[in-house]
Computed example of a mutant assay.
Amino acid sequence: MEILVKKWAKQAFLIVLVSFLFNTSFAQTTRKEKSAQKEAEVKGLVESRNYVFKAEFAQPMRGGSRYITPDYDLTVSKDSLVAYLPYFGRAYIAPINPQDGGVMFTTTQFDYNMAEKKNSWEIVFNTRNAKDVQKMYLSVGKDGYATLQITSNSRDPISFRGYVQARKKKA
């Protein structure tokens, strides 16, 4: 009887071990497939120049970092760049209109320079007629999370963290 129990225990152990190894390798394959799919999606967005950077977190040069509402974004298309972002920090020239306090502009005159790195895409926007904004640096990771840094003529630099997503189609 004792021999049967030992055989049964060995078989049960082997069954549990094999099923554990199978489930682990299956989960890793699924994770890798999802990661590869997300990477291809993000690459397509960045290369097509047709996406939205959704800002979630603002990091001014001075003062504390803060979460922001999901309404703020930078919309990129081949022919235009639309920024609707808040600003926190020191402005060296105060805006005449208090409604002009953020980083808000629409321009069709900009350069889009992209370089692919090991784990990200580095994009530099040079704006020619956007009020107060010199350059914007967008670093997009393969997973879609991104950091946007803005340098200005009359304000301290500010950074935003968020993610890129496809632009919504207009109805």
Rank of each mutant, 00 (worst) to 15 (best):
A27M: 11
A27H: 09
Q28W: 11
T29K: 12
T30A: 01
E33G: 10
K34V: 00
K34S: 06
S35R: 15
A36D: 13
A36R: 10
V42E: 05
L45I: 05
V46M: 07
V46P: 00
R49Q: 15
N50Y: 14
V52F: 06
F53A: 04
F53I: 12
K54H: 11
A55T: 10
A55D: 10
E56I: 02
E56Y: 05
A58F: 06
Q59C: 10
P60G: 08
G63D: 05
S65E: 04
I68Q: 03
T69Q: 08
T69M: 02
T69P: 03
D71W: 00
D71K: 06
Y72K: 03
D73R: 08
T75G: 06
T75C: 07
V76K: 00
S77Y: 08
K78E: 14
V82F: 15
V82P: 01
V82D: 12
G89R: 10
R90M: 06
R90W: 11
A91T: 11
I93M: 15
P95T: 03
I96H: 09
I96C: 06
D100K: 04
D100F: 05
G101T: 10
M104I: 14
F105W: 08
Q109C: 05
D111I: 08
Y112C: 05
M114Q: 13
A115E: 14
E116G: 02
E122L: 13
E122F: 11
F125R: 02
N126S: 13
R128W: 12
A130I: 04
D132C: 08
D132K: 03
V133A: 01
Q134A: 03
K135W: 00
M136H: 01
M136K: 01
Y137N: 07
L138R: 01
